[in-house]
Computed example of a mutant assay.
Amino acid sequence: MIHIGLAAALVVVPPIDQGAVRDAALSAGFQEAYVGVAGPIAQAIHAAYDIPASVTVAQAILESNWGRSKLSTAELNHFGFKCVTPTSPGPIALKCARYPSTECVPAPCHAVDAYFRSYASIGDSFRDYGRLLTTSSNYAAALPVRSDPDAFIRAVARKYATDPEYANKVIRLMDLYDLRRFDR
C-alpha cells in the first residue's frame, strides 16, 4: 500500500503497476480492467474525502476514456485537470504539460493550447480530484448531498462541465457498470 499524507487525512492507495494500467487500457475487456483499478482507488478517496466512489470512477471513465486518452496515459491525468497557470500545477501534480484543446467559453468553441496537470501516479490524480472537489467553492453545493451519488454529480456538473448532459452521462456509467458497488 502507498500511504499519502494529507493535512487532515491519510489516504491509503492500493499499490498500482502503471504499466499494467496502460496495458489494460489497450486490451480487450479494458472497461472491467479499468474499473478494477479505479474502484479501489476511488474507495480510498472516499475514505479520505467522503466523495461517492461511484461518481469518482464514472467521472474518471468519462474524462480519461477508460484510461486510454493521451492525457491519462502520458500524464496520468484521469480527470482532465488543467493547470492554474502554465507553470502552476497545484499542490499535488508534478508539472504542467501543453496539449491542444477546445474551449467553448467564451462561445463559439475554438482551438487552444492548454496546460494540463501531470501526475506521478494515477493515485495522485484521484487524490487531486478529491482535494479539488472538497476545497473549491465551485463544488460547495455538492458536499451536503454527497451521500446521494446522483444528486452529488448533478451539483458537481453545474461547475465541472459545460456539457448539459454531463451528469446524465456519469449516472448512466454508474448504472451500466454497477459502480455504486464501490459505495457500499
Rank of each mutant, 00 (worst) to 15 (best):
A28N: 14
R181C: 04
I153Y: 06
S64Q: 05
G19H: 10
A48I: 08
R180P: 06
D23I: 08
V37D: 05
P15H: 09
F182T: 00
A141C: 03
F81C: 03
A42D: 10
T134Q: 01
S118M: 10
P149S: 11
A142E: 09
L26D: 11
R181E: 11
Q43A: 12
P14W: 14
C83A: 06
P108W: 05
K82A: 05
R127Q: 02
A28M: 08
S27Y: 03
A114C: 03
A33T: 03
S27R: 14
Y166L: 12
P14V: 06
A9T: 11
R68T: 08
S88W: 06
R154L: 05
V156W: 12
Q31L: 01
S147I: 05
N77F: 01
C83P: 07
A24G: 15
R181G: 10
G5D: 13
H110E: 02
D183L: 01
P100R: 12
K95S: 14
S125H: 00
A140Y: 07
A151E: 10
Y49R: 06
K70F: 00
T85W: 07
D175G: 10
K70G: 06
H3Y: 07
D113V: 05
L132H: 14
A53P: 07
P86W: 12
Q31Y: 02
Y34A: 00
Y160N: 10
F81L: 13
A167N: 07
V35F: 04
I61G: 02
T134R: 10
P14F: 11
V37L: 10
F116Y: 13
D175M: 00
E103Y: 12
F81E: 09
V170N: 10
E32Q: 14
E63Q: 09
T162F: 11
A48W: 09
Y99W: 11
I16N: 02
A161E: 13
A33D: 12
V84S: 12
L10K: 11
A24F: 02
S118N: 03
R172S: 15
A44E: 02
V55S: 05
A33M: 01
G130W: 04
S147F: 10
R22E: 13
I45C: 07
T134S: 04
T162M: 11
G123S: 12
S121T: 15
A8C: 04
A58S: 03
A60I: 04
F152Y: 15
L62Q: 15
G67T: 01
V105T: 12
T56V: 14
D150P: 01
P164A: 11
D178V: 01
S101L: 04
L143E: 01
V57W: 01
L71P: 01
E32Y: 02
E165T: 14
V112S: 03
F152E: 00
P149R: 09
V37C: 08
P40G: 08
P164D: 13
S54R: 04
Y99E: 13
D183W: 00
P15V: 07
W66Q: 06
C104W: 12
